[in-house]
């Protein structure tokens, strides 16, 4: 049975706490963009995706490509809590000989469907998997979680054209629209708005929702699954650093180092 929205919110809180603990322990990593992604990942892994944590390479599983690879802490915490590996392993994030590399490595971490790192590359990978799935008559779906700043990369739009041209309705892109990137606001650096219109003119089905509302997220993903002949992009309006008041909407928390004091303060906010 699928967890209730209340249960999903509780899981998301646990995952957020894990993310902060990992970042404190590692002494580096990306807080803001990890925290903004947590509800999306929790909705997907607990409420939407068909996966078997005990068989990470089960052929019929739904796949996720983490194109915004800097949100690795959020994905690792979600995978650990979902049962792919021991939660204790999260403390090894970014450390020597860890299976939890700074950016996802499919050969080291159970549950990672594609190695990623360089921005803007995930959607092409998702498209390739989707094409193979269609050729082989397989029913699984492919999710691609992207950052909004990532849309500055030209390859994203190449992949956007490819997915629409080949009618890859088994692809669902999710944009973590937190409106911030490393150096500041997306609209100040190079404006992305109107983002919905951009994807619509690329012949995608577009859904825009509150990316921290798990009910809206699961509804958006089931709408995406019902759309035929067109890929869907879910534009998830989020807050960078969500859940930790001093991090929220602060570009410097893209990758600022967490201190013990700030960690304690953040954990209190997520108690």
């Amino acid at each position: 049975m699928s967890p209730t929205p209340i249960e999903l919110r509780d899981i998301a809180k646990v995952v957020r706490r894990d993310v902060l603990t990992m970042l404190l322990e590692a002494g580096s990593g990306h807080a803001g963009g990890s925290l903004s992604s947590v509800d999306i990942l929790v909705a997907l892994y607990w409420g939407v995706m068909r996966v078997r944590p005990d068989r990470p390479s089960w052929e019929e599983r739904d796949r996720l490509v983490l194109s915004k690879a800097h949100a690795a802490p959020a994905l690792y915490a979600a995978l650990a809590r979902r049962g792919y590996f021991d939660v204790k392993d999260l403390l090894t994030f970014r450390k020597i000989r860890t299976k939890l590399q700074g950016f996802p490595d499919m050969h080291k971490t159970p549950g990672i469907d594609a190695s990623v790192g360089s921005p803007g590359q995930g959607l092409s990978i998702a498209n390739g998997i989707a094409m193979a799935a269609k050729r082989d008559g397989r029913q699984y779906r492919i999710y691609c979680l992207m950052g909004d700043g990532e849309a500055h990369e030209g390859q994203v739009w190449e992949a956007g054209m490819t997915a629409a041209h080949h009618k890859l309705d088994n692809v669902c892109a999710v944009i973590d629209r937190n409106r911030m990137m490393g150096d500041g606001g997306t609209e100040d650096i190079v404006a992305l708005s109107p983002l919905q219109d951009k994807w619509r003119t690329f012949n995608w089905h577009v859904v825009e929702i509150d990316g921290h509302n798990v009910e809206q997220l699961t509804a958006a993903f089931s709408e995406a699954a019902s759309v035929k002949g067109q890929p869907t992009v879910v534009i998830a309006r989020t807050v960078k650093g969500k859940g930790v008041p001093f991090m929220e909407n602060k570009a410097e928390w893209h990758d600022r180092k967490l201190t013990e004091d700030l960690y304690e303060e953040a954990m209190k906010a997520l108690a």
């Binding site: 092409s124 193979a132 082989d136 992949a159 054209m161």
Partner: peptide
């Protein structure tokens, strides 16, 4: 599969196809 003048997307798409066993 002619991907058009999208060399970067071509290589990325190839990665996905290979991941799925092609």
């Amino acid at each position: 599969l002619d991907i058009g003048l999208c060399e970067q997307d071509m290589i990325g798409t190839a990665a996905g196809l290979a991941l799925a066993g092609k």
